[in-house]
């Protein structure tokens, strides 16, 4: 696992005065699924273009599988599959023909390419439509064809730029599962850029948060959450109501809050209209629900608050200001 698939050192890219990528350092190990998380215009795509040698690097270096991609872009492109954001195909060609063309561009012998193409189409679930023109494909099918297109050259690394953009939730789920399955099966390194934390959470081993050309934080998701929300890793929201036909009179709210605070690991309790918010270091939902019911209230809902990208940015900007 020590082998580095992508090794970026001090990478900088400027567009005039605007700094798109600022002194980026990043290593991704072989077989890893790395999520690059950031808002639009953070420099994710620019970074990816530089990894592929598709745009000039202002300073720093990029090594992919040990090859300098600004000096030997062709060698890098042989090993890296890249699915661009909003990928396009030749609409008058069938899915299979599109794949075969890319295979020919990769100098794969015809027979071999055909076999591989059919296999991959089956894998991504497009075998039924392989002979219909791409013009008739749905968005999800195109995206899967894009994945097939990336896989046909048998890459060591695949780079997916916002692959889930414009897919419906079901499509996203399937697509992500497909990526994970293929990556694990073939030991492919995956670099996955997105602005959806949840999608990245689902599939990635490691995540880098990228804002305004800088890598803000990087690491495993769990450690990242701890890094970010060390005080209150869990936040639970609950809704309560008083039952009309009381068997026993409910505990006064204040007293219940006291009891909640007494639960180990609970850091803070706030009471709102018909509800409460509990912050804790541990998942205490079971204890909480028992307590609410015992106290004679009805528990309408209890849910874990999930942190989105917004919270993370917010958190970081807060810290920036405090410094």
């Amino acid at each position: 696992m020590a082998e580095k698939s992508i090794d970026i050192k001090g990478l900088t890219k400027k567009y005039g005065e605007h700094i798109a990528v600022n002194n980026l350092n990043l290593t991704i190990e072989k077989g890893e699924i790395f999520g690059l998380l950031g808002p639009n215009g953070a420099g994710k795509s620019t970074t990816i273009l530089m990894i592929l040698g598709l745009t000039e690097v202002d300073s720093g270096s990029v090594n992919v599988c040990g090859i300098d991609s600004s000096r030997y872009p062709l060698e890098v492109k042989r090993k890296v599959g890249y699915l661009p954001e909003d990928v396009g195909f030749y609409n008058d060609y069938t899915g299979l023909q599109n794949l075969m063309y890319v295979a020919r561009l990769n100098d794969i012998p015809q027979e071999e390419a055909k076999k591989a193409a059919l296999e991959i189409l089956q894998e991504v679930g497009l075998e039924d439509v392989k002979d219909s023109k791409v013009a008739s494909y749905s968005r999800g099918m195109r995206q899967r064809l894009g994945l097939a297109d990336v896989l046909i050259k048998n890459p060591e690394v695949i780079i997916l730029d916002e692959p889930t953009l414009g897919l419906d939730p079901e499509g996203v789920k399937k697509f992500l599962q497909l990526i994970v399955r293929l990556s694990r099966k073939k030991g492919i390194t995956v670099l996955f850029s997105s602005h959806h934390l949840h999608q990245i959470q689902q599939v990635c081993d490691r995540v880098g948060i990228f804002v305004k050309g800088k890598m803000l934080a990087e690491g495993k998701i769990s450690s990242l959450a701890q890094q970010l929300f060390s005080k209150n890793a869990f936040t639970l929201e609950g809704g309560i109501s008083t039952l009309t036909e009381d068997v026993e009179p409910p505990l006064p709210l204040k007293e219940m809050v006291q009891k909640m605070k007494a639960i180990p690991e609970v850091a803070n309790v706030e009471l709102g209209d018909n509800g409460f918010v509990v912050e804790s270091n541990k998942d205490v939902s079971a204890d909480l629900s028992r307590l609410v019911v015992k106290s004679g209230y009805g528990l309408n809902f209890l849910r874990k608050k999930e942190y989105g990208l917004d919270d993370i940015y917010y958190q970081y900007f807060q810290e920036d200001k405090n410094r």
Binding site: K77, V80, V87, G88, F89, L105, N106, K153
Partner: peptide, 14 residues
Amino acid sequence: QRGTLSRIMAQPVP
């Protein structure tokens, strides 16, 4: 415009 250029450029062709 079709978005095929970047796909082709990502292949190992000069």
